[in-house]
Amino acid sequence: MQERIPILQMGMVLLVTIQVDMHDRLALQLQDDLTNKISESGAKGVLIDISSLEMVDSFIGRVLANISSMASVLDAKTVVVGMQPAVAITLVELGLSLNGVMTALNVMKGMKLLERE
C-alpha cells in the first residue's frame, strides 16, 4: 500500500493538507484522487494547505496549477493556503506564478474566501 495524501470533505469543500514531502508520484496520485473525489462528491471548493511544505520544484508547482485548472473544469474553486516565503520565492523565480489559483494566508482565511465565492 503506497502512501496517500488524505482528502477530507467538509460540507461542499474538500480539504487537503500536505504534511509530507511531496514527491512526483505522490503529487500525481493526489491529482488523481482529488479529481475523482470532486466528481463523486460534487464539491464546490478545494482547499489545499501547504503550510508544512518547505520545498517545491517546478514539477510540484505545475501539478498545483494543474489541479486548480482541473478543479475549475469540474466547477470547483481552488484555494492554496499557507505558502511559505521560501516556496513563494522559488515558484516566482521558476516563472510559475500560479495565475488563476486563489491564495490565502491560512486555512481560516481560505475558508472565508471560498464561502464568499
Binding site: V80, Q84, L91, V92, E93, S97, T103, L105
Partner: peptide
C-alpha cells in the same frame, strides 16, 4: 512584479 507575485502566492 516578482515581489507582488510572490506575495500573491502567499495569499496577500
Amino acid at each position: 512584479l516578482k515581489t507582488v507575485a510572490a506575495a500573491r502566492l502567499m495569499g496577500a
